Amino acid sequence: MKLKICGMKYPENIIEVGSLLPDYMGFIFYEKSARYFNGTIPELIKTIKKVGVFVNESVENIIKKIDEHNLQAVQLHGTESVEFCQELKNKINKRIEIIKVFSIGDDFDFEVLQPFEDVCDYFLFDTKGKLPGGNGATFNWKILKNNKSYKPFFLSGGIGLEEIAAIKNLKLPVYAIDVNSRFEIEPGLKNKNLLTNFKRKLEIVNL
């Protein structure tokens, strides 16, 4: 399982957390978020993929941010349609990954995923809540057994140190773990010590 650390905001903290070499780092380009990023991303180790997180943004503005920040992945966290994803896919570099987010509740119908399989690279399953993300709560992961899609997925939503054992016992093909609010000192400011501990435990699970 790969690791994505999302909601990065402050340059010094970005560099500090980047030294842990996560596979992905997420930057939220959604103005209503407390983790809204409106600066310049410091230079990172090339193995770290920079992810731009967008909520119902236009294709033009997404491409603008890709070019401005040299993003390697785009995360769509709104109600973007299949047609929107297809248009974006057609207009961006094929090497740029598209991650489509779905908010999961107990009544989620996994059949809605099927039309998106050909227009994105990954799914991301997050907890359904009041906000598009960063609600700090997990959803019932057992519902993922209803997922029949072949598409690799990120697991998100309130994941902290206490969830490592449950992740290990999940026995599902999770491509990456996405962490955010449970490792914060304040919105956008991550606790490196907690993340170091989490990454070490995640690596043990991967063995």
Rank of each mutant, 00 (worst) to 15 (best):
H77C: 10
I185L: 13
I167V: 12
Y24D: 03
F29G: 14
R35N: 06
P173N: 07
D106E: 15
K142D: 13
V51Y: 01
F102G: 09
G134W: 10
L170Y: 06
D121K: 13
G157D: 09
N197R: 12
L113K: 07
K201L: 14
D178L: 08
N13L: 07
N140C: 06
D178Q: 12
Y150A: 09
E60T: 12
C6S: 10
K190N: 09
I185E: 14
K9G: 02
A166P: 00
I98E: 03
N191V: 03
A176P: 08
P173Q: 04
E97V: 11
C85M: 08
E31C: 02
N90H: 07
D178P: 06
D107P: 02
I66E: 02
E203V: 11
T127D: 04
N169T: 03
L131V: 01
K100S: 12
K171P: 00
K91Y: 00
E43F: 01
Q75L: 09
E184C: 10
V55Q: 08
I48P: 07
T40E: 15
V174L: 05
T138S: 08
N147H: 01
A34V: 13
K4N: 10
M8L: 15
G39H: 11
P11F: 12
G7P: 02
K130G: 14
F154W: 00
L71Q: 08
D121G: 05
L124H: 09
I48Q: 07
I63M: 12
N13V: 05
V101T: 15
V74C: 09
K128P: 04
I48Y: 01
N191M: 06
D23T: 14
L113Y: 11
I164D: 00
I177Y: 01
V53T: 13
T40Q: 14
M8W: 06
I164Y: 05
G105T: 14
G78M: 04
Y10H: 13
A137C: 06
